[in-house]
Design a protein around this nucleic acid. Structure first.
Lengths: 237, 237, 237, 237
DNA sequence: AATGAATGAGCCTTCATTCAT
DNA sequence: GATGAATGAAGGCTCATTCAT
């Protein structure tokens, strides 16, 4: 079904002034169109129209429809990785309690989604996406799970039973709740309230999971190195 | 965009022996095809082929593609409502503690998803579905949220701040976690373990939300340590 | 049964050079295809093929098959109305006898059919056409009947008994005979001969109907013996 | 497009009691369905349904859809020929004037159409019919034209100029007017009035064409005022 | 580079016809 | 003989993609 990009990928990377602008217009339009109609039913014609360019121009910059989605994913990845880097660095500040660290992270998630909620929902919920996009997204999510796992480990939250499960569940819950509360809040919510509510879930879960040990930092045994502040950035690779 | 089924729905619902079988084959096939390709890209030809019938036969029973999805939704609704009825009834047994009641419900959810995980994911995550399907699903979810809300109320879990938010979050979390753990478990999990993990989240959330009051109605707090983990598994029958 | 053109008719009407040509090629092809196979069995693929374009191009200019027919009808209407305007104006010249006036009109009809006999036959005889087309055609015919009725009235041809019947019969006869004599002449006929023959019927009918009064308005009876038989042939330009 | 009846035409001629009834039910249904939807869009399923039989049964008696139409044509032919035989015989009565003879014939036509107006319209106006049907109809019309020609000849109505043209025009006019006045009368009309109006056209035409010689054969002109207007109505039985 | 007309494979749907029951 | 489920070719229409201007 999917056609390989048989011909040499002669599309130019946007270097010119106008080019860059056009590409962004297309990507912005694509987000809206894909969100409104889904990926399969989002037509290139509509994207071009909404972007204010011709289909021909669209194909000047993207070899095919899939490539637009992939570009969207790449853009998303870059944003998330950048933000995640900052957020995890901040969360690793030596003097934070685990709840404080988690608040930093959850707030970061919410900010991320608030940027472009529709895109996030599309990428994480559209049932079928091109293989390439799906793989990249999976890798991203995996890296975040790992980063969270490391954070938990640092605070001595033992992964009882299934290693990796706790972090996975945490990320799933936080991610999905963020989607829902941002896109379909059952009652009006400020971002702040979103964060609070998600934290209730997250902390409750960890409390139930593991009456974790007091703060880390202190003289006591964080024998482990300190993970590089930008933990997630590496992981995101 | 969507065509109303203006004409009398002349498709005969299965009455004969063979018919009923054919209809089921088509619905089963549809679940797989929609799951693999998404709704928009799931072609009727592929559905028919996988069902082992001709397109013509498919259209003998369904006036159009949307109707197949709607039938799937209806089937899903019926199953869920039946199971939910049993589960909530059981959860309202007078002598259960809240954790016990919640375990019953979560176990019910997991059983439900275990029946046809792909269908559940499709219906709850596909970004764009026919309006009719979307509305029915929304009503279903709403009714479940309300039922959970009532259960919580019964146990004195006050909806502090935003009324309805707690139940909504609870259902979102339980539902989504079930999807994920059933479809993409990061580590192998038994249904029993799924239930346990989800309960950790749910109970933790409630614990954080509201150090809820002891048992409800009955004078004697149930001494039982743990309700049978597979409480609802029987109900699922 | 027929689908309303619910969506904004995004098809562009010809603006560019090439477009206009394509649209005309399609319409011309449609006339031939509909004539050869009838409307229902005239496929868009065949129309496109005969027009020398792809189906896609056809649908770039017409939102659906019905719209092609409607365009044909509109084109027909425009032609007929223009020609009818000229013809009736000429027929109302003050110094014409009724036979002379009728000759002008009949000659105009024949000229009209001679332009595109197949289209005329299709539009007036195909048993089932899209509602929109049928209504427009009915209105056209009605307006012609009325114009003829006025002409007759002017010459004092009383509508004995059923008002409107005479003009209706006159138009029916003239119209149908023109079709037949143009498309299936039992013997070879020049347009001139067609007009003559039809006039025989028309004048005979009126003669039988009503030994109509002498000339109308002007006091002095027109001395002219016979108007040039091909009166309207020039007008057809 | 049309499939040859490759297999031996094993369909049985209706011999049994019920068979004959079924065949008629199908043909009656077919008339209605073809009339409402046109031939191409009249489906066999609908015909069968309206006839109160299954598609299977329909195909028991007719090898394909075309055959139904052809049977209709044959039936029509038989009726018309029978009626025409009676009518023309009566019209040849030695003592009738031409107007009287023509009245007999026109009344016969009107009776014929009144029997099954829709069928007549379908057969004479549907633009495209199966070749076989079209040929048979053409032959029928030709034979009627010839019979009328002979009648005219008998009354000394010379075919000036184009031999055969007068009779052809006469039949066209009478036939078409009958359709129109029966199916779409501009004002309410009794069959009697239809006949009168058509006769006005026909007689007028002949009067214009050829101030025909007095009665034919017999020396004594028939003094009879008017033949019974419903002359053929009995014949129609 | 931009434009948008043109292309045609493929999708949803219908319907004449067959055949197992 | 009757039934109606099954079949699949064909039709209307869409849309990703190409290409002449």
């Amino acid at each position: 079904m999917r056609k390989a990009l048989s011909q040499k990928d002669r599309r130019k990377m946007p270097s010119q002034e106008r080019s860059r602008f056009t590409v962004e217009a297309i990507l912005d339009a694509a987000v809206q169109v894909f969100e409104r109609h889904g990926y399969a039913a989002g037509t290139t014609a509509r994207i071009a129209e909404r972007a204010g360019v011709s289909v021909g121009s669209l194909y000047q910059y993207f070899p095919n429809k899939d490539a637009i989605l992939v570009a969207l994913v790449d853009q998303h990845l870059a944003e998330v990785q950048t933000l995640a880097g900052v957020v995890f660095a901040r969360a690793h500040a030596a003097d934070l309690t685990l709840p404080q660290a988690l608040r930093v992270i959850v707030a970061g998630f919410v900010d991320m989604h608030a940027l472009n909620p529709q895109l996030h929902r599309l990428l994480s919920e559209e049932v079928v996406l091109p293989g390439e996009a799906q793989e990249k997204l999976a890798r991203l999510k995996q890296s975040i799970v790992e980063a969270v796992g490391q954070l938990l480990a640092r605070y001595g939250v033992a992964e009882q039973g299934s290693p990796g499960l706790t972090a996975y569940v945490l990320v799933q819950v936080a991610d999905h709740l963020t989607h829902q509360l941002v896109l379909h809040p059952p009652v009006p919510l400020t971002p702040q309230q979103c964060v609070d509510e998600i934290l209730l879930v997250v902390l409750g879960y960890l409390g139930q999971t593991n009456p974790f040990t007091p703060p880390p930092a202190s003289p006591a045994p964080p024998p482990k190195e300190c993970p590089p502040a930008d933990a997630a950035e590496t992981a995101a690779r």
